[in-house]
Computed example of a mutant assay.
Amino acid sequence: MEKRIFWEIIEKSLLVQEDQANELQRLLSQFSLSDIVDFEIIMRELIIELDDYKVMGIPKIIDGYVSDDSYIYFRCWIISKGREIFDIALQHPDDIAKIVDQSTLPDFEDLLYIADNAYQFKSGVGDDDDNLPRNIAYSKGLDYDLDAPPTKGTKCEERDLPGVYPKLWAIFN
């Protein structure tokens, strides 16, 4: 699967926002098992690409804190919003203010399970199968959690958040 196809699947799933996870799984299940594995690999690469201190400042302002899990789920949420939002988060993180408000829940943990669920649905294998997309991607060194590469960039101190993210700060503080 090409990255372009990955983003097309994400964009199509956005049309069904109230149940985006199920729509993603439905769309992905139409692809080959190899493509489903590729989807997982691309997703993990993108989660790792988003691991940057300038991105980490966004959920710090929205939620007031960042834990390991909440940061992973936040990066999944960014990916689930499509290529344009992904690029904004990396290049101009304060511009995420255009799509958030006090009611925003920046969490899309379900993205982490889409490929495995689609793979199991299509193949009939169980949850412990070594060929599940998560296991294949992990064996290729694509870990976004405990064995992830170091976070990129320079850490932003709490006192600097209002100046670095003025648009987001105005919404949430």
Rank of each mutant, 00 (worst) to 15 (best):
C76Y: 02
A21K: 09
D63F: 11
L168I: 03
S103N: 14
S32M: 01
S34N: 12
N117P: 00
I88L: 11
G64A: 04
I61S: 07
I96M: 13
S70G: 09
I79V: 12
S70Q: 11
Y113D: 13
L46I: 06
T154Y: 05
P162V: 02
I88V: 15
D95H: 07
L111G: 08
I58W: 11
Q20E: 09
I99Q: 01
R4H: 05
F121Y: 14
S123C: 04
Y138S: 13
L33R: 08
E109G: 01
D95S: 13
K81W: 12
A148W: 02
M1Y: 06
S123K: 02
V66I: 15
A89P: 07
M43C: 05
Y138R: 15
K12E: 15
M56H: 10
K167R: 14
P166Q: 04
I88A: 06
S32L: 01
I78P: 04
H92Y: 15
E49V: 05
I42A: 02
L46P: 05
D19S: 13
V16C: 00
Y71K: 07
L90D: 10
I114H: 04
I41W: 04
C156L: 15
Q102P: 00
P166N: 06
I171F: 02
A170R: 13
S123P: 07
Y73S: 04
A115Q: 05
L15M: 03
D69L: 10
K155G: 09
K140C: 00
E18N: 12
D35C: 00
L132K: 10
L168Q: 07
D69G: 03
Q91R: 15
D95T: 00
R159V: 12
P106I: 02
M43S: 12
V55F: 10
K167N: 14
S139T: 09
I41E: 12
I136C: 03
D130E: 14
I85V: 15
I136K: 11
R44D: 10
V164T: 15
L50W: 06
S80E: 03
E40F: 04
I78T: 07
L105N: 11
I78Y: 03
Y138Q: 13
N117W: 10
E2I: 02
G126F: 07
I41R: 11
P149H: 05
I48T: 08
T104D: 10
N22I: 01
Q120L: 10
I79N: 02
I88N: 06
G163R: 06
T151F: 01
Q30D: 01
D127W: 15
K122V: 14
Q30W: 00
S103M: 05
V164Y: 13
S80A: 12
I99P: 02
D143K: 09
P133V: 02
I72F: 08
I78W: 06
I61C: 04
